[in-house]
Design a protein around this nucleic acid. Structure first.
Lengths: 203, 203
DNA sequence: TTCAGACGGAGAGTCATTCTCCGTTTCACG
DNA sequence: CGTGAAACGGAGAATGACTCTCCGTCTGAA
C-alpha cells in the first residue's frame, strides 16, 4: 500500500468508482467495463492501471456502498423512536440494494483474497441490523414473528421490483410505495396481540 | 397454423418449452439457448426447426405462464372469501414472476409482430386483477389506499428477492415469508376503519 | 526544466451465443 | 411391411461482445 498517487491518478480512480456506481444503478451489474470507463471519461488503459481487474472495481464499489449504509445504520440506531429508526434502516437497505442489484451476490460467489474487508463490513452491518430490529421488537412496534436475519431480504424485495409488469408501468414512486407496504406488513399488528392473523372477524 | 405436426415434432416442441421454463426459473432469463436445448435433450437444429428464433420460444413460454396465471386468477375470483381470493392471486403472481424474472419486460421491449397474443393475454389478466382487488377492497379487507394497478408490482417485489444478502442465506421458505409480510401490509388495518394508519394506540 | 509516471485509445485474444447445413433416423400411411 | 417425407442430432460458421495490454504522448511536481 502507501505509494502516494499523483493527483490526476487519484482523480481518475475516483471518477471510475463514481461512474461505476451510477452505471450499475442504471443498467445493473451486467454493465460492461467499457461502459463504465466511457462514462468516467478515461481510457481502458487508465482503468487497468488503477484496478487490477474488473472484480476489484466492483469490490471497491461495494465497500463504498456498505460504508454509507453503515453510516445510515448508525444514525438509525440513535433515533429516539425505535420504529422510525427501523423504518429508516429498511428504507436505506432497499435503496442500496435497488441501486446495486446482485453486487453482493456476485462478490460473495467468487471469494478471492480481498474478500476479508468486504465480509467484515458485512459483519458490522449485520450487527446494526440486529440491534435496530431487536430494539424495535422489544418496543413492540415490529412484529415478533420475524427475525432480524430476514430484514435485509424484506428490504431487498422492495428493491427488486421490476419497472414494468403486465404491460403496466410502476411509475416514479413505485419503490417507495412498495417499501411502505412492506413496512406496514412488518409493523406489529393491533397492539400487543402479536400473533399475526386477525382473529376477530370473518367477513 | 394448420399442418399437423408429426408426433415426435410436437413432442420436441413441448420438451423445449418445458425445459425453457425450468431453466429460466433456475438461471434467470439469461440462460443460453444452448442450455435450454441441452436440457430438453434435443439438438439445436431441432430447436430452430420448431421455433423461428429464441424470441419466439420466450414468447411461447410467456403465453403458457400467463395462461396458467389466468386459470388461477379465475379460481381466485370465485373464492367465496374475498381476502382468500386476493391472497391467492398475489401469491400466484409472486410465484410466476419469481420463476420468470424479467420475461415480460424482455418481450415488452421488442414488440415484433406476434405481440398481439401476449398483450391480449395481459389484458385479460389485468382485468382479473382489477376485479379481485376491487372486490376485496369493497369488502374492506384490503386497504383502500392502494390501486389494483400496484398489485402486480407488490407481488413482483416479493418475487424479486435475491437468494443471498449481506452474506446471509434466504433459506427455502424465504419467498413465502416475504409474500406473507406483503400481504399483511396490504390487509386493511384495524377493522372496517380503512384509512391506513392504526389510529388506536401509540406504543 | 526534467522525467517518472499517468493518460488515451487501438486492438489482440478469448469466449459465448445464435443460427445453419447435412447425413442419418423415424414416423405414419398405403 | 415398405417407402418417402419429415424430423432428428450435432458439428461448426458467423457474429459480436468483453476483458485486458501495449505503446506513443502528455503532464504534474520537484
Amino acid at each position: 500500500m502507501a505509494r502516494e498517487l499523483r493527483s490526476d491518478a487519484r482523480r481518475s480512480a475516483e471518477l471510475v468508482v463514481a461512474a461505476a456506481r451510477t452505471a450499475i444503478a442504471e443498467h445493473g451489474l451486467a454493465v460492461s467495463t467499457n461502459e463504465i470507463v466511457k462514462r468516467a471519461g478515461v481510457g481502458p488503459g487508465t482503468f487497468y492501471r488503477r484496478f487490477p481487474s474488473r472484480h476489484a472495481l466492483l469490490e471497491a464499489v461495494l465497500l463504498e456502498v456498505v460504508g454509507e449504509l453503515l453510516e445510515q445504520a448508525r444514525s438509525a440506531a440513535q433515533d429516539p423512536d425505535p420504529w422510525a429508526g427501523f423504518a429508516g434502516l429498511v428504507s436505506a437497505l432497499a435503496v442500496a440494494q435497488s441501486e446495486n442489484k446482485g453486487l453482493a451476490d456476485a462478490l460473495a460467489a467468487e471469494p478471492e483474497e480481498g474478500g476479508d474487508e468486504v465480509s467484515s463490513a458485512f459483519g458490522s452491518l449485520r450487527d446494526h441490523v440486529r440491534v435496530i430490529t431487536e430494539r424495535a421488537q422489544e418496543a413492540g412496534v415490529v412484529r415478533a414473528d420475524v427475525t432480524w436475519r430476514d430484514v435485509p431480504f424484506f428490504a431487498g424485495a422492495a428493491a427488486g421490483m421490476s419497472p414494468r409488469c403486465l404491460g403496466l408501468d410502476a411509475g416514479v414512486s413505485g419503490r417507495e410505495r412498495v417499501v411502505a407496504v412492506v413496512l406496514a406488513g412488518l409493523r406489529a399488528p393491533g397492539r400487543g396481540a402479536l400473533p399475526g392473523e386477525s382473529p376477530r372477524d370473518q367477513r
